[in-house]
């Protein structure tokens, strides 16, 4: 009698374990299905900041020439060079920053904030550049209110 009851008890136990296991598997499957939305991201075509790259680029060459002109106070020449750099490579962030600086020296401050915003956007991965741009923005605000 005891053996028979024990056997029945075992059977019920097995059944309960089976039911629990099944329900666990089904719920986990269902939960897994809901959570795992396979989200991807498109590649972000961020250009590396060319200053940190050894290779020569025509835009970088023009930038260097422009900076030299700026140092020599040949602001018009510098502006032309920076514009040429942007024409050749419109995604070259440093050229926008330097163009803003040349125009600041030429006292053409009206829209240079947009050039700085563009530079910020293109150079967002470089903390050095962002700091540099911010500094210039502060100076601009201080001197001109823009």
């Amino acid at each position: 009698m005891d053996a028979r009851r024990e056997h029945e008890f075992m059977k019920i136990n097995k059944l309960i374990i089976f039911v629990i296991a099944c329900s666990l598997i089904t719920t986990s499957c269902a939960t897994m299905g809901k959570k795992a939305v396979p989200t991807k991201r498109p590649p972000i075509y961020d250009k590396p900041v060319i200053d940190s790259v050894e290779t020569q680029s025509p835009a970088k060459e023009l930038l260097k020439e422009g900076i030299t002109h700026l140092k020599e106070k040949a602001h018009q020449k510098a502006e032309w060079k920076f514009e040429e750099a942007i024409k050749l490579d419109p995604d070259y962030g440093p050229a926008y920053y330097w163009l803003a600086r040349a125009r600041y020296r030429l006292n053409q401050i009206k829209d240079i904030i947009y050039l700085l915003e563009k530079a910020e956007l293109l150079l967002k991965n470089s903390t050095t550049w962002i700091e540099r741009i911010q500094k210039f923005k502060d100076l601009l605000y201080e001197k001109t209110g823009y």
């Binding site: 939305v37 989200t39 991807k40 991201r41 498109p42 590649p43 972000i44 075509y45 961020d46 995604d91």
Partner: peptide, 14 residues
């Protein structure tokens, strides 16, 4: 070949 520049806020979802 060049693609349009994406931002980090873009996701592709099925």
């Amino acid at each position: 070949y060049r693609d349009f520049t994406a931002t980090e806020n873009i996701v592709i979802v099925p």
